[in-house]
C-alpha cells in the first residue's frame, strides 16, 4: 500500500511572517478605506471604489488573521 504523508498547504514555519505581511497590507488598505470614507463627500463617493478597497482589504485581513491564529497555535 503506497501511502504518502500529507503536509500543510503552506509550510508551518512561514505562518508568523505571512501573518505580519498580510495583516499589515490589510491594515494599510483598511486605513485607506476609512480615509476615503471620511474625506470624500457623499456625492463624489464611488461605490465601486469603496467595495473594491473593502474586498481587497478583507481578503488580506482574512488570510492575515488566519495565519495569525495558526502561528499562535490555534489550529483551526
Amino acid at each position: 500500500m503506497a501511502s504518502k504523508p500529507i503536509t500543510s498547504p503552506v509550510p508551518v514555519e512561514w505562518y508568523p511572517s505571512l501573518s505580519v505581511l498580510m495583516l499589515s497590507i490589510g491594515l494599510v488598505l483598511t486605513a485607506s478605506f476609512f480615509i476615503y470614507e471620511a474625506t470624500s463627500s457623499k456625492r463624489s463617493r464611488s461605490l465601486s471604489k469603496e467595495i473594491t478597497i473593502g474586498a481587497v482589504a478583507s481578503f488580506f485581513l482574512g488570510f492575515g488573521s488566519l495565519f495569525l491564529l495558526l502561528a499562535t497555535g490555534v489550529y483551526v
Partner: peptide, 22 residues
Amino acid sequence: MEPFLLISGFFFLFIACIVYMH
C-alpha cells in the same frame, strides 16, 4: 472554508461602513 469565513466577516464590516455612510 476557514479563511473564507474570516474574509466574509471582515467584508461584512466594510459593507456595514459603506451602508452607514450612504
